[in-house]
């Protein structure tokens, strides 16, 4: 019952995912773009972000605001280290496919 209520409560907020305290959040890149669109992490806490490329082409995970840039080969998974973030949001995108849209990491 609790899980059903939790699921219903999460529905209006769309594809936002919250990282747990000890979790290593995952962003997946597929043909439609990044999933989730918005990743919520805990502010002031370092974390390791896993980026998985589910497409047949290499991608370049990049965030100018966070000074991050990593190539992810097809089918590969990489880990991107992030220092503790101040509350706020930063954008990331695939620098090899600009039409694939972008995602947001929000620290709360």
């Amino acid at each position: 019952m609790i899980s059903v209520l939790a699921t219903l409560a999460a529905l209006p907020f769309g594809p936002t995912v919250r990282a747990d305290d000890d979790a290593q959040p995952v962003i997946r890149f597929h043909d439609g773009g990044f999933e989730p669109d918005e990743l919520v992490v805990k502010a002031k806490t370092p974390f390791r972000l896993h980026v998985v490329n589910l497409t047949k082409d290499p991608i370049e995970f990049e965030s100018f605001e966070r000074n991050r840039e990593c190539v992810v080969l097809p089918g590969a998974r990489i880990v991107v280290y992030h220092p503790a973030l101040d509350p706020g949001s930063c954008k990331y995108f695939d620098d090899f496919h600009h039409d694939a849209g972008q995602g947001t990491i929000t620290a709360k």
């Binding site: 840039e69 880990v79 991107v80 280290y81 992030h82």
Partner: peptide
Amino acid sequence: RKRLNFSSWDAYVSDPGTRIQKLRN
């Protein structure tokens, strides 16, 4: 500055994947 900023090199170094990508670039 967006693509490569030597004044922010410490930030790149804190992630080995980013560091190596900047060096390769």
